[in-house]
Nucleic acid binder design. Sequence first.
DNA 1: GGTTACGTTGACGTAAACGTAAAGCAAAAA
DNA 2: TTTTTGCTTTACGTTTACGTCAACGTAACC
Lengths: 136, 136
Amino acid sequence: MKTETIEPGSYSISELAQEFGITTRAIRFYEDKGLLSPARRGQARVYSPEDRVRLMLILRGKRLGFSLDESREIIDMYDPAHGNVEQLQRLLQYIEQKRAQLQQQLRDIHSLMEELDRAEARARAALSSDQRKNPS
Amino acid sequence: MKTETIEPGSYSISELAQEFGITTRAIRFYEDKGLLSPARRGQARVYSPEDRVRLMLILRGKRLGFSLDESREIIDMYDPAHGNVEQLQRLLQYIEQKRAQLQQQLRDIHSLMEELDRAEARARAALSSDQRKNPS
DNA sequence: GGTTACGTTGACGTAAACGTAAAGCAAAAA
DNA sequence: TTTTTGCTTTACGTTTACGTCAACGTAACC
């Protein structure tokens, strides 16, 4: 029989690892780095849906080339732990900076996509000329 | 007096380093990894405009979170060194795969941008309430 | 002709992000 | 009850992408 989750809406470490195609080692590493802090059932880690969302945010950050530190900053942005005005000002600055970075990434992606289009066109042209030279 | 380039349309390693805000060490490292192969004037490296473009492509790749290996593959895509049909087929597959990755990145960027919007709204709301509590 | 500026080749160091055992605990299945 | 299954901590290893000297070459400036 398949190992089922005891409590609904909670996940074991291997469940999350399998769902997202990563290793349990990686998930524990993220915890070491302060990105996750799951509950414990005895000594075993128990992940809540919120933990799972945090993990998804970490992985999205990785897809965008963010370091774990960057992802942690972004995730920490969500919970309202920034009480004073100075913190909020810095948060706004950080947000603007991240926005600029994402806009640069958008430009980079568009230019690279156009290059992929051209490379594909060249490849298809080369293929069709090969076909003329060597018809099946 | 500023050090000028001997031949027009060519660059020293420190010129490129300064232009792109990286170290000469990094540029030499990219050469070690097969991403650049500048000419030599004596023992000194001389970079052509094409070399400079390759460097720009490397840095764009970095902004998108690519490894140097990935960037090399992408750059190698440009020069037509893929003679036979099998190579071309694999190139087309690679292009399609990269396109999918870029589209995923686009989705990730959009979702993150929306979250930045919400975070900014929350921060501004918190700021204005702080201002009410503590008017200058 | 000595110093300064810029370049070179090693070579070792380092931070990030895990991989990979090793050894043990604990619940569940046989 | 033994065995398997799954999870734990500890710890050393690995890859990537450079940083950081060190020691030297060379061309230019004073």
